[in-house]
Design a binder for these strands. Sequence first.
DNA 1: TGCCAGGCCCTCTTTAGGGCCTT
Length: 209
Amino acid sequence: MKDSPRNANSLVILDFETTGLSPSMGDRAIEIGAVRIRDGKVIDSFQELMDPGFLVDAFIEGYTGITNDMLAEARTCEKVMKDFADYIGDDNLVAHNASFDKRFLDSEFEEIDHSYSGKFVCSMLLARRIYQDAPNHQLGTLVDYKNIPSDGNFHRALYDAEMTAQLWMRMLNDISGRVRSPAPTFEMVCKLTRTPKKMIESLLQNWQA
DNA sequence: TGCCAGGCCCTCTTTAGGGCCTT
């Protein structure tokens, strides 16, 4: 789905499945999943496997459920990422542990000589601030902690992006009711998570419970 | 299975070390 008219309230939540942890060590993306939120609702999505140009190891096959047979039929990273660049446009971006996804996004975009203007923010850093009593801050744990409906099928890109989007909207909803002390203040959350204040303000203003 | 890397954050800290989180 790529019909994506944009405005200032759009936000793309994305997740990569990859061959490993570090593009600087030669790892590549093998799947991208993303959803776009506008005015508190998911309005469209993007998902595609991509062939990294080499075989992935057994751990990654088991961890993601993405096999080498599946990737053999996929388009190349370069072709998929060109479409994904069109999809995100200038929208701001969210990911769970964003430093990881940003490294891969930057690396794959470098391969196609593309840059983007949206700001990247991290749902995990926000969750660490506002859900300090959670058992841990893994995506699956937080989904359970907030009783977000889930079938537990994590480690596929679109599903993880969808769950991150639901978690992100839940966090915004919780922040809107916790701006008074002693809970973390709104300004504190923006500063500590490096989340642009205008982004959260805009999403809160347009949040539809 | 869990290491690789790297950013964030806490503490037995700041001239550092180690856990968490992502695949």
